[in-house]
Simulated scan of single mutants.
Amino acid sequence: MVEEKKQHPKRRPPSARLTRRSLAFVAAGAVLAAVATFVVAGFQGADDNGGGGAGSVVTTGAVAGEAFGTATGGDCLTWTALDASDLAKVDCEQSHLFEVVADIDLSVFPGAEWGPGTRFPSVSRFTQLRDEQCAPAAMDYLGGRFDPHGKFSVGLINPGEAGWAAGERTLRCGLQFSSTTGNLLPIEGRVADQDQSRAWDPGVCIGINNGVPADPVDCAKPHAFEVAAVVDLSERFPDALPSIEDQDAFLEETCTARVDEFLGDPEALRNKTLTLFWDNLNFDSWLAGSRKVNCSIGTQVEGGGFAAITGSAKGDILIDGQPPVPPPDDNGRLLPTPLPGAAPLPGG
């Protein structure tokens, strides 16, 4: 593909950039949907219509345990039970799910909302508290170096309905690693000591759910796209954040070369009808120290979603259950792969 680019320098940027922009839009939608239902790291409040019904959210009385009751900034917590009732403190170098940045005592807040006998807050109220109290606490905890678009997100653990009924009013704010669908992924080491770039390792396949990227899966299972490379933008831009245009120019060339190397054949991307796309970094991410982005490969479908790919792109794949058909060679000239549903190319 590098050689092809040299022969036809005007090829590829429009479709590749379209796919990259679409990925950002689709992924953001999935994250927003996850936030609406997963805002407190497994300790959600009752729904707005009251608890106890078939659709109510399961909560936990983990406040009865010492780990929640004594957790403070710098402690790391983990659990395995769905309701997190086995919550425990662990060394932060060990695998964990939550790094506490602050404990917030609601009993000292003004107003009657938090007094004895008050109703357990709803998910939306806990979401407000997370945004109002936990987001700034996380920024302070990290000395201002928090990437709001990176791999870590701000979470909140509440005491659960049982703890609330017993009079516990302390919340724990913390940092967590959430997947696209909102599931928590393990963390090893303190966040302050890590690169916060939201970049997956090469060879990771991101699952698919109704055309939308989901959680990492084995590449033998249906997935939206496969990560082919990680690029450190500081290699080319060591001093200041480059513009999106400069990022795109650098990443078009670099990702093309890295993907060709990943696949082992410069014609593989074309022959398997896959499209290359990449991520960009913005000012907030750069300021927090994030420098890495992914080069990924997948197939976009009409409407902005993704086709389901089965198998690693390094070998044989199926796209929506069918083997890919390489585009024709028109008098020796390689044609760009059209997006599904696109009109035939002139002369095709």
Rank of each mutant, 00 (worst) to 15 (best):
A34G: 14
P202N: 02
G51P: 12
D279T: 08
N210V: 12
K89H: 09
A62N: 02
S312E: 01
P238R: 02
P242C: 06
V230Q: 10
E253R: 09
L106E: 07
D105V: 09
D47A: 09
D131K: 12
F25P: 04
A88Q: 12
D47I: 08
P346M: 09
A288G: 06
V35H: 15
P266C: 10
Q44I: 01
D215Y: 11
T37R: 15
G163H: 08
E113V: 07
C219R: 05
C76H: 03
S95C: 00
T170G: 06
A30F: 08
G347F: 07
R11W: 14
M1H: 11
D47V: 07
S56W: 12
P323S: 07
S22V: 11
D195M: 03
D260I: 03
P238M: 02
E93F: 05
S124T: 06
K89I: 07
V212A: 09
A138Q: 02
P344L: 09
L18A: 15
A214S: 15
V227F: 00
A308S: 13
L263H: 08
E261Q: 13
D284H: 11
V90S: 00
P121F: 10
T78V: 12
I206Y: 08
F250P: 00
G182F: 13
P136W: 07
I206W: 04
V26T: 14
A199D: 00
T180R: 14
L276R: 08
R236F: 00
L175T: 05
G50A: 00
N271D: 14
D320L: 03
P222K: 10
N49L: 09
E252R: 12
E99H: 00
A16E: 15
V100H: 05
R169N: 08
F306C: 06
V58Q: 13
T299R: 15
R130C: 06
V100A: 05
Q44W: 11
S197G: 01
A81S: 11
N49S: 12
T59V: 01
G332Y: 13
R270E: 07
G174M: 05
T70H: 02
Q196S: 02
E252M: 14
